[in-house]
Amino acid sequence: MALRTDEIADRIYRFSTFVPEVGPSGFTFNQFFVDAEEPLLFHTGMRALFPDVSAAIARIRPVEQLRWITFGHVEADECGAMNLFLAAAPHAVVAHGVLGCEVSLDDLADRPPRRLADNEVMDLGGHRIQHIDTPHAPHNWESRVLYEQTTGVLFCGDLMTQLGDGPALTGTDLVEPAARAEDVFHATSLGPAVPAALHRLAELRPATLAVMHGSGFTGDAARALRDLATVYEQRM
């Protein structure tokens, strides 16, 4: 497994590892690094990916300068290496929504996490990160996303998941591939919270969707989010 690094926006990097054994056509596991005065990592990857992800960060900034460790919800592929990064970066802190901290992270994280209120903004110095609670969207009670206000990048976690190994960014429609991935994995909570969250995120009018599994999207991201909401509304 080889990790690829791509800059998807100004000083925002995507680290991608393709695992051909997952699903019918392979699957990517993506992490995102925001190179700011207070550097931020969105998704840590599983513990087995820690050597590759930390090496990718080190090619941009020393790993020990990492300040914020973040992820969408509590799963191995999103935060499995959390405590390894806390050990490698002595000033790093996990930042998550209040619910995620209360339910899991106050106990799981080796240092106390920072609790973020819905819509709270973290000024990283050069980038501004908005925390948005999305409970049960696409799954897990403590789910959330991050929105980088200066570049318009929406770190949307498992939303818009696709199979295969595409480019880091595409302007091609991802809604149909996301629907096919849902047919394979059935990973999304089919309830009203999902389309409601997608419509809410569309109101941000993001410039880029940073997707955890599959390609990111540039173009009319608001329309893509609304179209995906329609897919789930129809499936309900």
Rank of each mutant, 00 (worst) to 15 (best):
E78Y: 09
D52G: 01
E78M: 13
P112C: 10
S143M: 05
H91N: 15
H91P: 01
G171C: 00
G100T: 09
V93C: 12
G97C: 11
M122W: 08
G126V: 02
E182I: 01
D173N: 15
I69Q: 13
A89N: 07
Q65C: 14
E120N: 08
D123H: 12
D158S: 04
A88C: 09
P112R: 13
A181R: 08
H91C: 11
M122E: 06
G164P: 05
L169V: 02
H127R: 10
R128Q: 10
L105S: 01
Y147G: 02
A55N: 05
C101F: 02
L154Y: 05
A58H: 07
T161E: 11
A95M: 11
F85G: 08
P90A: 09
A81M: 06
A87W: 10
D110A: 15
I60M: 08
V121S: 10
I129K: 06
L163S: 00
S104W: 14
T151S: 15
G171R: 08
V98I: 13
I60E: 07
G72C: 06
D107R: 14
L116E: 08
P135S: 05
L49F: 15
H127N: 10
R180F: 11
A81H: 03
H127S: 12
H91S: 13
T151N: 09
G157C: 12
L86A: 11
G164A: 03
T150W: 06
G80W: 02
A56V: 01
A56Y: 02
G152W: 07
D165C: 10
V145L: 08
D52V: 01
V53C: 03
R67I: 02
R128F: 00
E120V: 08
D158H: 06
D133R: 06
E64F: 14
A92E: 11
D118P: 05
R61P: 11
L174H: 03
I57V: 12
R144Q: 15
V121K: 03
L174P: 06
T170H: 03
A117N: 12
V74T: 13
A58L: 06
R128Y: 04
V63T: 14
D107T: 15
C79V: 01
G152A: 12
F155Y: 09
V98A: 12
A179R: 15
P138N: 02
D173R: 04
V103W: 13
G126N: 06
L124R: 03
G166Y: 06
T170M: 03
T150Q: 15
C101V: 10
Q130G: 01
H91R: 14
L163E: 05
L105A: 04
V153R: 05
S54M: 05
L124A: 09
G72A: 12
P138E: 06
D106E: 14
Y147P: 02
A56C: 10
V153H: 01
A48G: 13
D118R: 00
R61C: 13
H131C: 10
L86G: 07
A178T: 05
D107F: 15
R115N: 09
G126F: 07
L154T: 04
L49M: 14
L105H: 05
C101P: 03
A178K: 02
R67W: 04
A56M: 06
L163G: 07
L105D: 00
A87R: 14
E120F: 09
T134K: 07
A55F: 01
W68H: 11
I129S: 05
A137M: 01
D165L: 07
A117F: 10
L49N: 12
V121C: 10
L124G: 05
A168G: 08
G125C: 08
N119I: 08
L159V: 11
